[in-house]
Structure formats: structure tokens, C-alpha cells
């Protein structure tokens, strides 16, 4: 796992990295694909929909902050298992997770998305965008669902999702990185491993480009989440302060 090794990786080096990342993804994906099979779960019933919509904005934000925090914790574990991540300096580990953990949650969401009903696994059910109405962020929610839909239309395998998640996380253009070059090198190796995997899976040549184009979309979603959070906090500072998970505040608080 020496991330400063020679710049020319052999195919077997890339396969080794690929295996490590795919294994890490599977060990930390929160729900297995089989568990998320939409046929195993009900969609939110009308009575439940009403209950979600009747929740106050504060209550619904709190529910979602808890769910996001749970999902982020699995992403932290994912990062820790990627060869090379724990060899980065601690400042950079934190910078990468602060900037990228929610992006990976959004990428992973395509696994839990049912395109037939435009719904996503949430709180033990498959829920459409209307379930989140009381958050008061319809535009953001609808963009998150659109993103899940377009990601899921790529029909990526678990391995492809794992490598793409690692690629998203190891972005060398984040502000405040101390060892940009090391992160850049790691990301280049991940990209090469992803490219190698896509070739092996006989995917169209355009798939990698399509995936890389998604990076700016997912970044946009995360910055809009930050804007919505700061608007919400301006209205309900006490709710955020006393009822939101500490990790959520640490990641998105400033």
C-alpha cells in the first residue's frame, strides 16, 4: 500500500487496488443489494405519507440528519479500508471526508433507488420525493432523486460503484489539502483501476466519461445541502445545536 510507489502501475497492481476497493465497498455498504430489492419492501402508504408530511420542518430535518449521519459513518469506514488512505496525513484524511463523504452517500443512493416508482429506501420503506416535503427543500430533493435516477440508469455493478465512490472521495482539488500530490496520485491510480475494470466488464467507452461528468453534479448537490442547512439553522439554531448528531454538525457545520 505504498502510495508513493512508481507512477507506472502494472495491470496486476491495478487489479490489486481494484480488489481492495471493491472488498472495502462491500464490507461497508450499509445494506447489501439483496436486502434493498424493492420487491422486499413496501412503498410508503398514504397514511404514512401523511404522517411524514405532518411532521414539523424541525422534526423532519432531525430524522434526515440522523439518517445521513448513519450513512456517512459507513463511508468513513470505507475510506479507512482503501489502500493508501490511512497513509495520508490526518489533516488530508479529514479534508477528504468533510468534502466527500456526503457525495459518496449520494453515489451509493443509486443502489437503493427504484426507478419504477421513483423512490428510495428510507426508514424501512421505499419513499418518493413527496415524503420529504416538510423539509422545505423540494428543489434539492427533486435534484437528489434525479441524480439517483441518472446514476441508476448507468446500471453499474457493485464493483464499479465501489471504485467510482473511491474516485469521488480521493479528489485532489479539495481546498486545504496539505499533500495534494499524494492525493492526486492516489486518485489517478483509482481512475486507472476503474478504467481497467470497465474494460474488463466490456462497458461502452463512454461510460467512464459519463461517470466523471457526474462528479460536478454530486458536488452541486452537496453545496446546495450546505446552503439549505445554513438557511435552516438561521431559522432554528437551537434544533441544530441540541438535536442534530454531533458528527453531522462537525461535517457540515461550517
Amino acid at each position: 500500500s505504498d502510495i508513493d510507489s512508481s507512477p507506472t502501475d502494472t495491470t496486476s497492481d491495478l487489479e490489486h487496488l481494484s480488489e481492495n476497493i471493491c472488498k472495502s465497498h462491500m464490507e461497508t455498504c450499509q445494506y447489501l443489494r439483496e436486502e434493498l430489492e424493492p420487491s422486499k419492501w413496501q412503498t410508503v402508504l398514504n397514511t404514512e405519507l401523511e404522517a411524514y408530511q405532518k411532521k414539523s420542518q424541525e422534526e423532519m430535518w432531525q430524522v434526515c440528519a440522523v439518517k445521513v449521519t448513519e450513512a456517512v459513518q459507513y463511508v468513513v469506514e470505507f475510506a479507512k479500508r482503501i489502500d493508501g488512505f490511512m497513509e495520508l496525513c490526518q489533516n488530508d484524511q479529514i479534508v477528504l471526508l468533510k468534502a466527500g463523504s456526503l457525495e459518496v452517500v449520494f453515489v451509493r443512493m443509486c443502489r437503493a433507488y427504484d426507478s419504477q416508482n421513483n423512490s428510495v429506501y428510507f426508514d424501512g420503506k421505499y419513499a418518493g420525493p413527496e415524503v420529504f416535503r416538510s423539509l422545505g427543500c423540494d428543489d434539492l430533493i427533486s435534484s437528489v432523486f434525479d441524480f439517483a435516477k441518472s446514476m441508476s440508469s448507468l446500471q453499474l455493478t457493485e464493483d464499479e460503484i465501489g471504485l467510482f465512490s473511491a474516485y469521488v472521495l480521493m479528489s485532489s482539488d479539495r481546498s486545504w489539502l496539505q499533500e495534494k500530490n499524494r492525493v492526486e496520485k492516489l486518485q489517478q491510480r483509482i481512475q486507472a483501476a476503474l478504467q481497467n475494470l470497465l474494460q474488463k466488464n466490456q462497458r461502452d467507452k463512454g461510460v467512464l466519461t459519463k461517470m466523471i461528468c457526474k462528479v460536478s453534479t454530486v458536488r452541486g448537490l452537496c453545496s446546495r445541502h450546505m446552503e439549505k442547512l445554513s438557511a435552516f439553522r438561521a431559522l432554528h439554531p437551537d434544533t441544530v445545536h441540541s438535536r442534530f448528531p454531533p458528527l453531522y454538525k462537525e461535517l457540515f457545520g461550517s
Partner: peptide, 20 residues
């Protein structure tokens, strides 16, 4: 460090998703 104490702790712990 103080500002990111939970992240620090998560990075240092040998936690697994089962423990989360």
C-alpha cells in the same frame, strides 16, 4: 483537532460497520 474530534476518533478507532 478539537473542531473535528469525532472524525478524529472514528479515524483512529478500529471500528467496523457492525459496531456502528
Amino acid at each position: 483537532k478539537e473542531k473535528h474530534k469525532i472524525l478524529h476518533r472514528l479515524l483512529q478507532n478500529s471500528t467496523s460497520p457492525v459496531d456502528l
